[in-house]
Design a protein around this nucleic acid. Structure first.
Length: 758
DNA sequence: AGCACGCCGACT
DNA sequence: GTCGGCGTGCTC
């Protein structure tokens, strides 16, 4: 049989490519195709084009459709996903296809995605009618009309750049006869989009955010100079205390980049885009002058399919200069990528916790190396991995040690010794100590805001019976259920199971069942009673469940309608509260003695972060930490704002204990209907491992049940393997994977490289 | 992973 | 007599 064959990567765990016949002019690697696969048609990615195939001719089927409107993914991008597939032990297709926007993986949507966008110009009728037809307050529409009146030819993406909802406006105006379509100029999706519209239209909507360029501190200036002056692969660790102006350093470095290379692209990663609207606003304001309606695009999982596809295509075609996104943006196609920023690089959110468990930060660094460009990792509390790299001189450290706003100093941090309070007979009320209550009252009198941080949502973590010791547990998980008093419900935070609160103990009938411990709901209730007159607001995953409600709640805080804000780590991130001068921390101690060796690193980062919310704008900030261990080294370091001391001490502990970053780890997880089945599989897997090459350089631990053994009736266990050599670990995993596939059993298993939780 | 086929229990 | 449970096998 003659004709061309293509080797296609498909989103399937099978570790192979699939051959298809493709007789039309053979598309190049990186092209998307729709192919028959079993009973269905799915979208795959051409990896190779070949004149022959090793698959028996009768089994080879034909490509159904070629997505020729979409420029092929570059060989550089294919290298990136190949690397990630190899590193994280997945098939190429399992990495490549989920990295694409969902809309692109549906052949039915291709025509619309790549349709040439109609471009409109004003008609005489429109010139007469449009000025009077607009609602008085529709500033975005006014600008759109003005642009048309100025002789510009505009499309829907220009309208959307003015206002997200203005995309349909042009079509409506055309129907009125006010504007008319221009003859099509050429296919979209090619690399010619950048010049379509000018800066004036894209600047839109941001007049209100003044693009203030604050004066830089000396440290900021040095950082910007270092980043902008870097040649080749240049990883920077930007270590800046909270409020020291890291964002301004990113902005200036990017300004310098675009001044030198107007066509360059930059990737800016943030841990959670919904929490950082002001971050996005700062970028839009500062870079309002960049050419093109899609000069700045965002990419995150909360976006609608179509919008996400548009952003992705703007990045892929080079129209987007700045791509601002969450971890999934780390895999975007960026042909002119010239600089990467990873803000809050220590955040665990950069590690995907399901499916392909990649670290967006680590992939970002790999990409920077691949392209020979600068990558800036910013944090007030860098991950110990990154800190260690800087200590070894592999990353260049840039320090911002002072707050950038004049007069803003770091808050004073004080421990409230709960043991001493108890000894002196000044017991706390429902977990909130006298000194904290007094401090809250003082702020209320001064008209300042306070923030109370507690990393546990719900009303109480457990509901227990005093008489017989019964504790409310989840029937499907090996975990307690959390009491949510407002909703009159017990809820499992692992599987979502819910039930009504029982009136009496189901074991012994005792009616005196009582909540044990405290969650945010209970603290909210208690504070309202302890601090009369205070307006208390709670922000956590439960109070913000409805879409957009977090935004509303936070704006209440900013507007000064709240005196005391109670919440989980949600309140610690990204928000610049101008009137907060007191931060109270409850119940932090548990993490000090956790089995998870990373718990203290996380706790320290969280407490530094939440402490940073106090006294941002020149108010004297104070942080009060309630603890039974006021002399613990972690709190000692926190009190002195001493990240460096904490990091170096923790690193040396890690070195002594041979823990990451001094060893590399991987986990084999098994999920089965019984724990025995999971263990049997892991034992066999561990035994198989010892026969592999490199095995002597790899340590295999015993299989252990996971902390929450049972979730939603599935029993889970895991096997840890580690090595001082990353290469040996990877080589072992590569050889191990095929053996695991042959170990039969009715269970699901997965390998995770560089796990964060073990 | 999907999605089939295939062989045993409780129901319109 | 069927509907449907999930075990097993295949996908170019």
């Amino acid at each position: 049989m003659s004709g061309a064959f293509v080797r296609v990567a498909l989103d399937s765990p099978l570790p192979t490519l699939f051959d298809y016949r493709c007789d039309s002019p053979p598309p190049s690697p990186g092209t998307l195709v729709a192919v028959p696969f079993g009973k269905r048609t799915i979208v795959g990615l051409i990896v190779e084009v070949s004149a022959h195939s090793d698959v028996p001719a009768e089994r080879v089927r034909s490509v159904e459709a070629v997505c020729s409107a979409c420029a092929p993914l570059s060989s550089e991008w294919l290298e990136l996903v190949s690397f990630a597939a190899d590193y994280y032990q997945r098939s190429l297709g399992e990495v490549a296809l989920p990295a694409l926007p969902q809309a692109l993986r549906d052949p039915d949507r291709w025509p619309r995605l790549f349709a040439v966008e109609p471009r409109y110009r004003l008609t005489d009728a429109g010139r007469a009618a449009l000025p009077d037809a607009l609602p008085a307050r529709a500033a975005a529409l006014r600008r759109l009309a003005d642009a048309l009146a100025g002789g510009q030819v505009l499309g829907a993406s220009d309208a959307r750049a003015l206002h997200p909802k203005a995309g349909a406006t042009l079509a409506a105006w055309q129907a009125q006869g006010w504007i008319e379509a221009e003859p099509a100029a050429g296919p979209d999706g090619a690399l010619d989009g950048a010049a379509r519209s000018n800066g004036e239209t894209s600047a839109a909507g941001d007049e209100r955010v003044a693009a203030v360029r604050p004066a830089l501190t000396d440290e900021q200036t040095q950082a910007v100079d270092a980043i902008a002056g870097a040649q080749g692969f240049a990883p920077f660790l930007l270590h800046g205390v909270t409020g020291s102006g890291k964002t301004e350093v990113y902005l200036r470095a990017l300004e310098r980049l675009f001044a030198a290379r107007p066509d360059a692209q930059a990737l800016v990663l943030v841990p959670e885009i919904n929490l950082t609207p002001q971050f996005e606003a700062a970028f839009r304001a500062r870079f309002a002058g960049l050419a093109g309606a899609e000069a700045i695009v965002t990419l995150h999982s909360a976006m609608a399919d179509g919008e996400r596809a548009r952003s992705w295509l703007a990045a892929h075609t080079g129209r987007a200069r700045i791509v601002l996104g969450t971890r999934l943006a780390a895999l975007a196609s960026l042909p002119a990528l010239a600089m990467i920023v990873v803000d809050e690089e220590h955040e665990p959110a950069y590690k995907q916790q399901e499916g392909l468990r990649y670290s967006a930060r680590d992939l970002a660094i790999w990409r920077a190396k691949q392209r020979g460009i600068a990558v800036v990792l910013g944090s007030a509390t860098p991950s110990l991995e990154s800190w260690w790299q800087a200590e070894q001189g592999r990353y260049r450290r840039l320090s911002l040690s002072r707050r950038a706003v004049a007069d803003a100093v770091l808050p004073s941090v004080r421990m409230i010794d709960l043991e001493e309070e108890r000894r002196r007979g000044r017991g706390s009320v429902d977990g909130i100590s006298g000194p904290l209550v007094a401090a809250l009252k003082a702020r209320l009198e001064r008209g300042e805001q306070s923030l109370v941080f507690l990393n546990r949502r719900g009303y109480a973590p457990v509901l227990a019976c005093d008489a017989c010791g019964w504790v409310a547990g989840c029937p499907r998980c090996s975990a307690y259920v959390v009491l949510h008093k407002n909703e009159h419900a017990l809820r499992c935070h692992h599987c979502g199971w819910e039930s009504r609160v029982p009136r009496a103990c189901p074991e012994c009938g005792n009616v005196d069942i009582a909540p044990l411990g405290r969650g945010t709901q209970r603290v909210e209730e208690t504070l309202a009673a302890l601090v009369p007159g205070a307006r208390v607001l709670r922000i956590d995953a439960d109070s913000t469940r409805r879409k957009g409600s977090a935004q509303t709640l936070f704006s209440n805080v900013h507007a000064g309608e709240v005196d005391i804000l109670v919440g989980t780590q949600m309140i610690a991130k990204g928000h610049d509260f101008q009137r907060v001068s007191l931060v109270g921390v409850l119940n932090a101690d548990a993490a000090l003695f956790s089995h998870d060796f990373r718990a203290s690193e996380r706790l320290f980062a969280q407490l530094m972060q939440v402490s940073g919310r106090a006294g941002r704008s020149g108010l004297a900030g104070e942080v009060l930490v309630q603890t039974r261990y006021p002399r613990h080294a972690l709190y000692h370091a926190l009190g002195r704002h001493d990240y460096v001391g904490f990091a170096n001490a923790t690193l040396s502990e890690r070195r002594d204990a041979q823990l990451p970053p001094f060893v590399y780890q991987a986990l084999l997880r098994a999920e089965a209907r019984t724990l025995d089945a999971a263990f049997a599989f892991l034992k066999a897997a561990g035994a198989a491992l010892s026969d592999l090459p490199f095995a002597e350089r790899v340590t295999v631990y015993d299989a252990v049940p996971m902390t929450i053994v049972k979730v939603a009736n599935v029993h889970r266990a895991q096997l840890l393997i580690e090595s001082a050599s990353r290469a040996s670990l990877l080589a072992t995993l590569r050889a191990w994977q095929p053996m695991l596939r042959t170990l039969k059993g009715v269970l699901r298993w997965s390998v995770e490289v560089d796990p964060l939780d073990i």
